[in-house]
């Protein structure tokens, strides 16, 4: 099935992408062309097959609960778009 503009708007919202209708329409053709290739999977007999999320078995990796060397605060903040008093500065997220 092919994605509609309405679905594209919804997906852009879910993915936090500010895209207008013209941009979404331009993206639709390549996305739908690629998705047409997915359809062949629908024909496979997969009912009794276990899914693979990793090719090599991966188990929980535990370690001793010992404090390591943390990243110094100033280094952690060095790439911040805006920082002050040792904190990240972001737009206001609660109303006054």
């Amino acid at each position: 099935m092919a994605l509609t503009l309405e679905q594209m708007r919804h997906l852009a919202k879910l993915a936090r992408l500010e895209l207008d209708d013209a941009q979404l329409e331009a993206l639709m053709a390549p996305i739908n062309a690629l998705m047409a290739h997915f359809e062949k999977l629908q024909a496979l007999p997969l009912d009794d097959v276990e899914p693979t999320s990793h090719s090599i078995p991966v188990y929980n990796a535990f370690r001793e609960d010992i404090v390591g060397t943390p990243l110094p605060r100033e280094e952690a903040l060095a790439n911040a778009p805006e920082a002050r008093d040792g904190l990240f500065i972001v737009p206001r997220i609660v109303e006054e």
Binding site: L44, V49, E50
Partner: peptide, 9 residues
């Protein structure tokens, strides 16, 4: 999920 199952095969 289908793709993950296909990956198993």
């Amino acid at each position: 999920l289908k793709a993950q199952k296909g990956r198993t095969l």
